[in-house]
Protein backbone atom coordinates (compact mmCIF):
# COMPACT_ATOMS: atom_id res chain seq x y z
CA UNK A 1 0.00 0.00 0.00
CA UNK A 2 1.29 3.44 -0.88
CA UNK A 3 1.90 5.80 2.02
CA UNK A 4 -0.10 8.57 0.40
CA UNK A 5 -2.75 8.31 -2.26
CA UNK A 6 -4.44 11.41 -3.58
CA UNK A 7 -7.52 10.70 -5.64
CA UNK A 8 -9.40 13.30 -7.64
CA UNK A 9 -8.66 16.03 -5.13
CA UNK A 10 -10.32 19.39 -5.76
CA UNK A 11 -9.95 22.39 -3.49
CA UNK A 12 -11.75 25.70 -3.80
CA UNK A 13 -11.56 29.09 -2.14
CA UNK A 14 -14.65 31.20 -1.59
CA UNK A 15 -13.84 34.70 -2.86
CA UNK A 16 -15.84 37.84 -3.56
CA UNK A 17 -15.81 37.01 -7.25
CA UNK A 18 -17.01 33.46 -6.76
CA UNK A 19 -15.45 30.07 -6.18
CA UNK A 20 -11.76 29.96 -7.09
CA UNK A 21 -10.82 26.45 -8.19
CA UNK A 22 -7.28 26.37 -6.82
CA UNK A 23 -6.79 22.61 -7.18
CA UNK A 24 -8.81 20.48 -9.56
CA UNK A 25 -8.97 16.71 -9.88
CA UNK A 26 -5.41 15.98 -8.80
CA UNK A 27 -4.38 12.33 -8.33
CA UNK A 28 -1.00 10.80 -7.51
CA UNK A 29 0.58 8.27 -5.19
CA UNK A 30 3.66 8.46 -3.02
CA UNK A 31 5.33 5.30 -1.71
CA UNK A 32 6.93 5.11 1.70
CA UNK A 33 10.46 6.47 1.32
CA UNK A 34 9.61 8.15 -1.99
CA UNK A 35 10.11 11.77 -2.90
CA UNK A 36 7.88 13.87 -5.12
CA UNK A 37 8.68 17.35 -6.34
CA UNK A 38 5.68 19.52 -7.16
CA UNK A 39 6.64 22.33 -9.51
CA UNK A 40 4.67 25.08 -11.16
CA UNK A 41 4.39 28.83 -11.31
CA UNK A 42 2.88 30.89 -8.52
CA UNK A 43 -0.86 30.41 -8.36
CA UNK A 44 -0.78 26.87 -9.78
CA UNK A 45 -2.15 25.34 -6.57
CA UNK A 46 0.97 23.61 -5.26
CA UNK A 47 0.99 25.37 -1.88
CA UNK A 48 -2.77 24.88 -1.46
CA UNK A 49 -2.22 21.17 -2.00
CA UNK A 50 0.54 21.12 0.63
CA UNK A 51 -1.64 22.97 3.12
CA UNK A 52 -4.51 20.53 2.55
CA UNK A 53 -2.16 17.64 3.37
CA UNK A 54 -1.45 19.28 6.71
CA UNK A 55 -5.11 20.12 7.38
CA UNK A 56 -4.15 23.78 7.35
CA UNK A 57 -6.37 25.27 4.65
CA UNK A 58 -7.48 28.83 5.45
CA UNK A 59 -11.11 29.30 6.58
CA UNK A 60 -12.36 30.13 3.08
CA UNK A 61 -10.67 27.05 1.60
CA UNK A 62 -12.60 23.82 1.24
CA UNK A 63 -11.96 20.36 -0.14
CA UNK A 64 -14.68 20.04 -2.77
CA UNK A 65 -14.09 16.48 -3.88
CA UNK A 66 -11.66 13.59 -3.79
CA UNK A 67 -9.70 11.69 -1.17
CA UNK A 68 -6.43 12.10 0.70
CA UNK A 69 -5.57 8.56 1.75
CA UNK A 70 -2.70 8.51 4.21
CA UNK A 71 -1.82 5.02 5.46
CA UNK A 72 -5.17 3.98 4.03
CA UNK A 73 -7.19 6.49 6.06
CA UNK A 74 -8.98 9.41 4.41
CA UNK A 75 -7.66 12.58 6.03
CA UNK A 76 -10.45 14.64 4.51
CA UNK A 77 -12.83 13.20 7.08
CA UNK A 78 -10.54 14.03 10.03
CA UNK A 79 -11.76 16.24 12.82
CA UNK A 80 -9.52 18.94 14.26
CA UNK A 81 -8.89 16.59 17.19
CA UNK A 82 -7.67 13.85 14.85
CA UNK A 83 -5.59 16.33 12.85
CA UNK A 84 -3.71 17.24 16.00
CA UNK A 85 -2.57 13.65 16.26
CA UNK A 86 -1.50 13.51 12.65
CA UNK A 87 0.25 16.84 12.33
CA UNK A 88 3.94 16.74 13.31
CA UNK A 89 3.71 13.11 14.45
CA UNK A 90 2.86 11.64 11.06
CA UNK A 91 3.05 14.52 8.62
CA UNK A 92 5.15 17.58 9.25
CA UNK A 93 6.20 20.62 7.33
CA UNK A 94 9.37 22.56 6.65
CA UNK A 95 8.21 26.13 6.22
CA UNK A 96 9.68 28.73 3.96
CA UNK A 97 11.17 31.96 5.30
CA UNK A 98 13.41 30.47 7.96
CA UNK A 99 14.10 34.00 9.10
CA UNK A 100 10.60 34.41 10.48
CA UNK A 101 9.46 30.94 11.50
CA UNK A 102 11.34 30.97 14.82
CA UNK A 103 10.25 33.07 17.78
CA UNK A 104 12.99 35.66 18.37
CA UNK A 105 12.56 35.85 22.15
CA UNK A 106 12.91 32.14 22.91
CA UNK A 107 16.02 29.97 22.74
CA UNK A 108 16.04 27.80 19.63
CA UNK A 109 16.53 24.59 21.61
CA UNK A 110 13.54 25.40 23.82
CA UNK A 111 11.34 25.97 20.78
CA UNK A 112 12.19 22.53 19.43
CA UNK A 113 11.68 21.03 22.90
CA UNK A 114 8.25 22.65 23.01
CA UNK A 115 7.30 21.04 19.72
CA UNK A 116 8.18 17.66 21.26
CA UNK A 117 6.51 18.19 24.63
CA UNK A 118 3.29 19.40 23.02
CA UNK A 119 2.95 16.10 21.20
CA UNK A 120 4.52 13.86 23.85
CA UNK A 121 3.34 15.34 27.15
CA UNK A 122 4.37 12.17 28.96
CA UNK A 123 8.04 12.50 28.02
CA UNK A 124 10.32 13.62 30.87
CA UNK A 125 12.16 16.87 30.31
CA UNK A 126 15.63 15.30 30.38
CA UNK A 127 14.67 12.91 27.64
CA UNK A 128 13.26 15.77 25.59
CA UNK A 129 16.51 17.73 25.83
CA UNK A 130 18.43 14.61 24.82
CA UNK A 131 16.17 14.30 21.82
CA UNK A 132 16.82 17.95 20.90
CA UNK A 133 20.58 17.35 21.09
CA UNK A 134 20.15 14.28 18.90
CA UNK A 135 18.20 16.34 16.37
CA UNK A 136 20.94 19.00 16.36
CA UNK A 137 23.53 16.35 15.54
CA UNK A 138 21.23 14.94 12.87
CA UNK A 139 20.80 18.22 10.98
CA UNK A 140 24.37 19.39 11.51
CA UNK A 141 24.12 22.21 14.04
CA UNK A 142 26.78 22.17 16.79
CA UNK A 143 25.07 20.95 19.97
CA UNK A 144 26.56 23.79 22.05
CA UNK A 145 24.31 26.21 20.09
CA UNK A 146 21.13 24.78 21.71
CA UNK A 147 20.92 27.68 24.15
CA UNK A 148 21.37 30.39 21.54
CA UNK A 149 18.60 32.69 20.32
CA UNK A 150 17.51 32.77 16.66
CA UNK A 151 19.36 36.04 15.92
CA UNK A 152 22.64 34.35 16.85
CA UNK A 153 22.12 31.79 14.08
CA UNK A 154 23.00 32.30 10.44
CA UNK A 155 20.22 31.90 7.85
CA UNK A 156 21.38 28.38 7.04
CA UNK A 157 21.45 27.35 10.70
CA UNK A 158 17.95 28.71 11.24
CA UNK A 159 16.70 26.67 8.32
CA UNK A 160 18.43 23.61 9.79
CA UNK A 161 16.67 24.29 13.10
CA UNK A 162 13.34 24.40 11.25
CA UNK A 163 14.21 21.04 9.69
CA UNK A 164 15.09 19.67 13.14
CA UNK A 165 11.68 20.83 14.36
CA UNK A 166 9.94 19.09 11.47
CA UNK A 167 11.78 15.87 12.36
CA UNK A 168 11.16 16.19 16.11
CA UNK A 169 8.29 13.70 16.35
CA UNK A 170 9.57 11.16 13.81
CA UNK A 171 7.05 11.87 11.05
CA UNK A 172 6.65 9.59 8.05
CA UNK A 173 5.93 12.33 5.54
CA UNK A 174 7.51 15.75 5.30
CA UNK A 175 6.14 18.56 3.18
CA UNK A 176 8.77 21.11 2.29
CA UNK A 177 7.34 24.29 0.76
CA UNK A 178 10.08 26.39 -0.86
CA UNK A 179 12.40 25.67 2.07
CA UNK A 180 15.36 27.45 0.52
CA UNK A 181 13.96 30.72 -0.81
CA UNK A 182 15.85 33.68 0.63
CA UNK A 183 18.97 31.57 1.16
CA UNK A 184 22.19 32.12 -0.75
CA UNK A 185 23.23 29.68 -3.45
CA UNK A 186 25.90 27.97 -1.37
CA UNK A 187 23.72 27.65 1.75
CA UNK A 188 20.82 26.51 -0.40
CA UNK A 189 22.98 23.77 -1.87
CA UNK A 190 24.01 22.62 1.61
CA UNK A 191 20.40 22.56 2.86
CA UNK A 192 19.17 20.63 -0.18
CA UNK A 193 21.91 18.03 0.29
CA UNK A 194 21.02 17.82 4.00
CA UNK A 195 17.33 17.22 3.23
CA UNK A 196 18.21 14.50 0.74
CA UNK A 197 20.64 12.85 3.16
CA UNK A 198 18.07 12.85 5.97
CA UNK A 199 15.37 11.53 3.67
CA UNK A 200 17.54 8.56 2.73
CA UNK A 201 18.87 7.94 6.23
CA UNK A 202 15.49 8.09 7.98
CA UNK A 203 13.48 6.52 5.16
CA UNK A 204 11.23 9.57 5.04
CA UNK A 205 8.74 10.34 2.33
CA UNK A 206 8.92 13.87 1.10
CA UNK A 207 6.82 16.23 -0.97
CA UNK A 208 8.97 19.10 -2.08
CA UNK A 209 7.12 22.14 -3.39
CA UNK A 210 8.90 24.81 -5.42
CA UNK A 211 8.51 27.02 -8.44
CA UNK A 212 12.08 26.15 -9.40
CA UNK A 213 12.63 22.86 -11.23
CA UNK A 214 16.36 22.93 -10.63
CA UNK A 215 15.80 22.90 -6.87
CA UNK A 216 13.31 20.02 -6.70
CA UNK A 217 15.53 18.08 -9.10
CA UNK A 218 18.32 18.13 -6.51
CA UNK A 219 16.14 16.29 -3.97
CA UNK A 220 13.31 14.36 -5.62
CA UNK A 221 12.95 11.12 -7.57
CA UNK A 222 9.54 11.89 -9.05
CA UNK A 223 8.29 15.14 -10.51
CA UNK A 224 4.74 16.41 -10.72
CA UNK A 225 4.19 19.48 -12.86
CA UNK A 226 1.19 21.63 -11.97
CA UNK A 227 -0.49 24.26 -14.10
CA UNK A 228 -3.54 26.36 -13.25
CA UNK A 229 -4.72 24.03 -10.50
CA UNK A 230 -4.18 20.78 -12.35
CA UNK A 231 -1.45 18.20 -12.32
CA UNK A 232 -0.43 18.11 -15.98
CA UNK A 233 2.54 15.73 -16.02
CA UNK A 234 3.83 13.17 -13.56
CA UNK A 235 6.68 10.72 -13.74
CA UNK A 236 10.22 9.83 -12.69
CA UNK A 237 12.58 12.79 -12.82
CA UNK A 238 14.70 11.35 -15.66
CA UNK A 239 11.67 10.63 -17.84
CA UNK A 240 10.14 14.06 -17.29
CA UNK A 241 13.40 15.94 -17.98
CA UNK A 242 14.66 13.87 -20.87
CA UNK A 243 11.36 13.14 -22.50
CA UNK A 244 8.91 15.85 -21.43
CA UNK A 245 5.52 15.27 -23.00
CA UNK A 246 3.15 18.03 -21.93
CA UNK A 247 3.70 21.27 -23.88
CA UNK A 248 3.70 23.20 -20.60
CA UNK A 249 6.51 21.08 -19.18
CA UNK A 250 8.47 21.54 -22.40
CA UNK A 251 7.94 25.30 -22.28
CA UNK A 252 8.93 25.46 -18.61
CA UNK A 253 12.15 23.55 -19.27
CA UNK A 254 13.01 25.96 -22.10
CA UNK A 255 13.05 28.83 -19.57
CA UNK A 256 16.26 27.52 -17.96
CA UNK A 257 19.70 28.30 -19.38
CA UNK A 258 22.69 26.01 -19.79
CA UNK A 259 26.18 27.06 -18.77
CA UNK A 260 28.15 25.49 -21.58
CA UNK A 261 27.95 25.70 -25.32
CA UNK A 262 26.29 28.45 -27.32
CA UNK A 263 24.29 31.06 -25.48
CA UNK A 264 20.84 30.28 -26.81
CA UNK A 265 18.06 32.75 -26.33
CA UNK A 266 15.65 31.52 -23.65
CA UNK A 267 12.12 30.95 -24.81
CA UNK A 268 9.79 32.09 -22.05
CA UNK A 269 6.13 31.11 -22.18
CA UNK A 270 4.02 33.89 -23.69
CA UNK A 271 0.82 35.03 -22.00
CA UNK A 272 -0.61 34.50 -18.54
CA UNK A 273 -2.37 31.55 -16.87
CA UNK A 274 -6.20 31.57 -16.96
CA UNK A 275 -8.46 32.94 -14.28
CA UNK A 276 -9.39 30.09 -11.94
CA UNK A 277 -12.78 31.50 -10.98
CA UNK A 278 -14.07 30.71 -14.46
CA UNK A 279 -11.49 28.39 -16.05
CA UNK A 280 -11.90 27.52 -19.72
CA UNK A 281 -13.85 24.32 -20.44
CA UNK A 282 -11.08 22.64 -22.41
CA UNK A 283 -7.35 22.46 -21.74
CA UNK A 284 -6.22 25.27 -19.46
CA UNK A 285 -2.91 25.70 -21.24
CA UNK A 286 -4.40 25.79 -24.71
CA UNK A 287 -4.19 29.59 -25.19
CA UNK A 288 -0.43 29.50 -24.61
CA UNK A 289 0.23 26.15 -26.24
CA UNK A 290 2.26 26.00 -29.47
CA UNK A 291 0.88 22.58 -30.42
CA UNK A 292 -2.79 23.03 -29.52
CA UNK A 293 -5.27 21.37 -31.83
CA UNK A 294 -8.77 22.56 -32.71
CA UNK A 295 -10.57 20.50 -30.09
CA UNK A 296 -8.23 21.50 -27.23
CA UNK A 297 -10.19 24.64 -26.46
CA UNK A 298 -13.51 22.92 -25.96
CA UNK A 299 -12.65 19.38 -24.88
CA UNK A 300 -11.35 18.68 -21.41
CA UNK A 301 -8.01 16.85 -21.64
CA UNK A 302 -7.63 13.25 -20.48
CA UNK A 303 -4.55 11.49 -19.16
CA UNK A 304 -2.21 10.01 -21.75
CA UNK A 305 -0.06 7.20 -20.40
CA UNK A 306 3.34 7.71 -22.04
CA UNK A 307 5.45 5.30 -19.98
CA UNK A 308 5.00 2.73 -17.22
CA UNK A 309 5.06 5.48 -14.57
CA UNK A 310 4.83 8.55 -16.78
CA UNK A 311 1.63 10.35 -17.73
CA UNK A 312 0.50 13.68 -19.14
CA UNK A 313 -2.85 15.47 -19.10
CA UNK A 314 -3.08 16.35 -22.77
CA UNK A 315 -5.22 15.38 -25.73
CA UNK A 316 -2.60 16.34 -28.29
CA UNK A 317 0.26 14.40 -26.64
CA UNK A 318 -0.56 10.75 -27.23
Amino acid sequence: MALLEIEGLSIGYGTRNGLLRAVEDVSFTLEAGGSLGLVGESGCGKTTLGMALMGLLPPNGKIMAGKILFEGQDLKESTEEQWRKIRWRKISMIFQAAMNALNPVHRVGDQIAEAISTHRPEMPEREIMERVAELYRLVGIPVERIKDYPHQYSGGMRQRAIIAMALACNPRLIIADEPTTALDVIVQDQILKEIKKLQEKLGLSIIFISHDISIVAEVCEDIGVMYAGQLVEWGPKEAVFENPVHPYTKALLASYPTLMGERERLRPIPGEPPNLVSPPPGCRFCDRCPSAGKSCKSQAPVWAQVGPRHKALCNACS
Binding site: I186, D189, Q190, D212, I213, S214, A217, E218, F241, L259
Partner: peptide, 9 residues
Protein backbone atom coordinates in the same frame (compact mmCIF):
# COMPACT_ATOMS: atom_id res chain seq x y z
CA UNK B 1 29.57 29.21 -6.49
CA UNK B 2 29.43 27.17 -9.69
CA UNK B 3 29.40 23.91 -7.69
CA UNK B 4 26.44 25.16 -5.67
CA UNK B 5 24.18 26.08 -8.62
CA UNK B 6 21.03 23.93 -8.63
CA UNK B 7 20.77 22.02 -11.89
CA UNK B 8 18.82 19.33 -13.70
CA UNK B 9 18.97 17.29 -16.88
Amino acid sequence: LIDALPKFG
